[in-house]
C-alpha cells in the first residue's frame, strides 16, 4: 500500500518537474534565439518576461480547436496523445539521482527501476514516430502527409545508429541498467572511451528529436508546419510539449550515457555526504549538465542550415551507420584484447 502511494507521489513529482522544466525551456529558447539574432525576445510578462510560459499556456488552452472537415477525427485526436504519452513514458526509467532516505526508508530517484531500462528507452523512443505519422495521415493534408513520411523515414534511419552507438557504451560499462551505466562512470566518463560513439549518438539524437538541422518533418519553408499543420489549440500544444519533453529526455540521456550522469571526472564529491543532501546535489548536477546539452541544441539550431532530404539519408546510412558498426567492432576488440 505504502509503496504504491510513494510510486504515485513520485510519478506526480516527476511529471511536474518535467512540465516546469519544459515550460522554462520554451522561455529560455525564445530568449536565447532572440539574443543570437540581436533581439530581446519576450520580456514583457513579469520580471524579464519570466511569466511568458504561463501566459502562453493560458492562451493555448483557450484557443479554438479546429479539426479539418475531411480529417479522420479519431486518429487526429489520438495522434498528439500518443506523442505526449511516449514522450512522458520514456523518462519513467531514467534515474535522476541515487536515493533519498526518509524515516530509514530508501526511496530511489527513479520511477520504474527496471533492469532493461536501456532497451525500454530505445523501444519507446521509436514508438514516438506513430504520433507524428498518424497526425500526418489523419489530417488529410498533403503537407502534413509529406512531413509524416519524412519523419518516419528519418526516425527509422537514425534509430539504427542511435542503438548501435549505445552498444559501445554498454560494452564499456558492462550493464544495460541506466543507473549502473552512470555509476560505472564515477571516475572516467564514457565520452573519453567512446568519443566516436558520443558524436554518433548526439547526431542521431538531433535527428530523433526533429531538431534543426534535421527538422525536415516540420521544415516550415517547404511544408508550412509539416505534420502539425492542421493542429490548433491544446492539441498543437501537446505536440509542442512532447517536442520539448523529448529534448529534455534526450539531453538527460546524453548526460547519463556519455557525460557521467551526476559525476564529475576524477573527484567523488558525494562520498562523505549525507545521502539526502547528496541526492539533491546529484539531481542538480544531472540537470545542470543536461541544460548545457540543451543549450547546445539551441546553438546548433541557429548555426546549421536544414539538411536536404537526400543528404539526410546519405548521412544516416552511408556515414553514421558504418561508423557506428566500426565503433562497436573496435570497442569489442579492445575489450577482448585488454
Amino acid at each position: 500500500m505504502e509503496s504504491i502511494l510513494i510510486a504515485i507521489l513520485k510519478a506526480i513529482i516527476f511529471i511536474l518537474l518535467f512540465l516546469t522544466f519544459s515550460a522554462v525551456l520554451t522561455y529560455v529558447e525564445r530568449r536565447i534565439s532572440a539574443f543570437i539574432q540581436d533581439r530581446l525576445g519576450p520580456n514583457r510578462v513579469g520580471p524579464f518576461g519570466l511569466f511568458q510560459p504561463i501566459a502562453d499556456v493560458v492562451k493555448i488552452i483557450f484557443k479554438e480547436e479546429i479539426i479539418p472537415a475531411n480529417a479522420d477525427r479519431t486518429l487526429h485526436t489520438l495522434a498528439p496523445i500518443i506523442s505526449l504519452f511516449v514522450a512522458y513514458s520514456v523518462f519513467a526509467v531514467l534515474p535522476i539521482g541515487e536515493k533519498l532516505v526518509i524515516d530509514g526508508k530508501e526511496i530511489k530517484l527513479v520511477l520504474a527501476d527496471v533492469n532493461v531500462g536501456f532497451l525500454y528507452i530505445l523501444a519507446l523512443s521509436s514508438l514516438g514516430v506513430y504520433g507524428v505519422t498518424l497526425s500526418g495521415w489523419s489530417s488529410n493534408n498533403k503537407y502534413s502527409l509529406l512531413g509524416a513520411l519524412r519523419a518516419s523515414a528519418q526516425m527509422i534511419s537514425y534509430e539504427l545508429s542511435l542503438g548501435l552507438s549505445l552498444v559501445g557504451v554498454v560494452l564499456v560499462s558492462g550493464s544495460i541498467q541506466i543507473d549502473e551505466i552512470i555509476r560505472s562512470q564515477a571516475n572516467v566518463w564514457n565520452i573519453f572511451y567512446q568519443p566516436v560513439g558520443f558524436i554518433i549518438f548526439l547526431v542521431s539524437v538531433f535527428a530523433e528529436t526533429n531538431r534543426l538541422p534535421f527538422d525536415l518533418p516540420e521544415a516550415e519553408p517547404e511544408l508550412v508546419a509539416g505534420y502539425h499543420t492542421e493542429y490548433s489549440g491544446m492539441k498543437f500544444g501537446a505536440f509542442y510539449l512532447a517536442e520539448y519533453t523529448n529534448i529534455i529526455t534526450a539531453s538527460l540521456l546524453v548526460t547519463a550515457f556519455f557525460l557521467g550522469g551526476w559525476y564529475f571526472p576524477f573527484v567523488d564529491i558525494y562520498s562523505g555526504l549525507n545521502p539526502n543532501l547528496s541526492a539533491i546535489l546529484q539531481v542538480i548536477v544531472f540537470f545542470g549538465k543536461a541544460s548545457l546539452i540543451i543549450f547546445l541544441f539551441m546553438l546548433v539550431r541557429w548555426t546549421l542550415p536544414r539538411f536536404r532530404y537526400d543528404q539526410l539519408m546519405r548521412l544516416g546510412w552511408q556515414v553514421l551507420l558504418p561508423l557506428a558498426l566500426l565503433n562497436v567492432l573496435v570497442t569489442g576488440l579492445v575489450k577482448i584484447l585488454l
Partner: peptide
C-alpha cells in the same frame, strides 16, 4: 553563434 549572444541588441 555563441559570441553573437553577447552582442548589443538593436
Amino acid at each position: 553563434t555563441f559570441r553573437q549572444i553577447f552582442k548589443p541588441k538593436f
